[in-house]
Design a protein around this nucleic acid. Structure first.
Lengths: 147, 147
DNA sequence: TTGTTATTGAAATTTAATCTCAATTGCAAT
DNA sequence: ATTGCAATTGAGATTAAATTTCAATAACAA
């Protein structure tokens, strides 16, 4: 069994929940996508494979996957949830352009370290984090002289 | 005219839009709240003052206020938008507990500085940002031995 | 004043997410 | 195996946020 399945099963057992076939299929599908995805992406992909899993179950399972620390919710500009898996996926944060909607990924070790220290100060155990910087990209700044 | 109104009017003019009485009222109400608020908070407060402004107008105006850099959307655990004003409001970030939902505010200058540097590297002009660290608070860690 | 264009409100619509509930399934105890 | 209890599922109803539509109105420049 793959690492992520082990971890999920462990989490479920600890909560008195069950590692059902549906939950395994959803987990596998989520981990087969090496990019951001949304609920409907999973639904479509599963149904293309003739897995008739309902949306309700996908919603419920994604909640569990986030709680177990296997997925994280990434915030895009859109008003519905987007996810990406954590295990085996390099962490990154985002610059979001207010004008053209462009998303730039970046990562910075020193910021991560400082976050760890903040957590220590508060006795907080981080599972994951998200950092978005919202503003204007290179190109769009030219049109934004109003400040 | 207050600083925020000046800035908003400037933004609107530049976009070929109008600084209408409704927009002014919404802006004032938003800036009278020195805390997070949601669309409905504004709607209720305005109607208590007999300002019969429709929800649609509030939604439309809040979009503009965010685009103009006067408000920022803060992400709470809930699935609808929350806002806070930027001008004259001390910036902070959040620690969110996955288990009990507790929100801890923190701020860290060195993280902010590093963010600025990241932006410089990408030629990006930041208007605001949001950083959330998700995990388990002091108290809830004890119950979370599954990792 | 006039014409153009943005804006508004009210209601309809869209969309995401949650809830309900009966049928089913997993699983531990027998 | 069998049984019984509790968790899980799917389908559809429901909730709630946000967006769209469109006719009436208002802002503003000429």
């Amino acid at each position: 069994m793959r690492a992520e399945e082990k971890k999920f099963e462990k989490y479920l057992r600890l909560c008195g929940l069950r590692f059902t076939p549906e939950r395994r299929l959803i987990l596998r599908e989520a981990f087969s996508i090496h990019d951001h995805f949304e609920v409907d992406d999973l639904f479509v992909r599963l149904h293309q494979k003739d897995c008739r899993i309902s949306r309700a179950t996908i919603y419920r399972t994604l909640d569990l996957l986030v709680k177990s620390g296997l997925l994280r919710e990434v915030i895009s500009g859109e008003r519905h949830s987007h996810y990406e898996h954590i295990l085996g996926h390099r962490h990154h944060d985002h610059l979001l352009c207010l004008k053209c909607g462009k998303v730039i990924e970046f990562s910075n070790n020193r910021i991560e370290e400082l976050q760890k220290r903040v957590c220590e100060d508060y006795g907080f155990k981080p599972e994951n984090h998200r950092l978005q910087i919202i503003g204007y990209c290179n190109r769009c700044q030219l049109d934004q002289g109003f400040t």
